[in-house]
Simulated scan of single mutants.
Amino acid sequence: MSDRLHDVRLMVNGAVHEIRVPARRLLSDALRHDLGLTGTHVGCEHGVCGACTVLVDGQPMRSCLMLAVSAQDYEITTVEGLTNPDGSLGPVQQAFAECHGLQCGFCTPGFLTTITAGLRQQPRPTHEQARDMIAGNLCRCTGYLNIVKAVERAAELQAGAS
């Protein structure tokens, strides 16, 4: 038996995309395979690692836990959507680069989206708040020290831009 396809209209990074997907297509798979936005990485496929985190109406969401058909009518932001309008690195991306907040880079997109949302809620985090902000994302390469520094630096960059 073939899986019936559903028409889904997704608003991703400010652009509307109309795709046809099976009912059980995960948002992570729709982003990567149907839209070609491969910045969203899939690690554990169980919502544990955070590598697939995107913003859904500004809130962090594990895209491996959300169906594409459920994402209709929401504004989705992937790591590709975090750049400035001129294409330059956004403040969180810039802070990651400056503070060496990545190593292999696999988990980085999930951290970038998570931190972006976290800084909207807590624009000037303390060191402990910065650590708490990233607590749900896993990295196998770092000791998180430079990632926490990147959170603090991104807060500085955003404060300087306002």
Rank of each mutant, 00 (worst) to 15 (best):
G14E: 10
G47T: 02
V148R: 01
P85V: 15
P125S: 00
N84A: 14
S88M: 10
P109W: 10
S70L: 14
L10M: 14
G43V: 07
E128K: 12
H46G: 00
E152P: 03
Y144A: 04
L102P: 00
E98R: 13
Q103I: 03
L27W: 14
R32M: 05
T40H: 10
L82V: 02
L157T: 11
E75T: 15
A51M: 06
R140I: 08
H46Y: 10
V92R: 05
P91R: 11
R32F: 06
M11S: 15
G143E: 11
P91G: 12
Y144T: 07
A95C: 00
G36S: 03
G43R: 02
I19C: 10
D86K: 10
T126W: 05
D73E: 15
M133I: 07
I147G: 00
L27C: 11
G143R: 14
T116D: 10
R32T: 01
L5D: 12
C52N: 06
T126F: 02
G143I: 11
C104D: 06
V92Y: 05
A161F: 07
L102F: 10
T126D: 01
A135K: 09
G14H: 13
V79N: 05
S70K: 15
Q93K: 00
H127S: 04
G47Q: 07
D7Y: 09
E128R: 13
P123C: 09
T113D: 01
F111W: 05
C141I: 02
G118E: 00
I76A: 07
R25Y: 07
F106S: 01
A161P: 08
A117C: 04
G136Y: 01
E98I: 09
V151T: 02
D29P: 09
G39T: 02
A68Y: 08
F111L: 01
P91L: 13
S162D: 13
R124C: 06
L82M: 02
N13F: 07
V12G: 09
A130V: 06
D73V: 08
Q93F: 08
R20T: 15
Y74M: 10
R153T: 09
V56T: 08
A154T: 01
L27D: 10
F96R: 03
P85K: 15
N13C: 11
K149V: 01
Q158I: 13
M1S: 13
E45P: 06
G58P: 03
L55F: 04
T83D: 12
P91V: 11
A161G: 03
S2H: 12
S88G: 15
T108M: 08
Y144V: 05
R9L: 13
L26C: 08
R4N: 14
F96C: 07
A97R: 14
Q103V: 10
P123F: 02
A30D: 01
F106I: 04
G90T: 04
P125T: 05
I76E: 00
G58M: 03
G81R: 08
V69Y: 07
A159Y: 09
S63P: 03
C99W: 04
T83I: 14
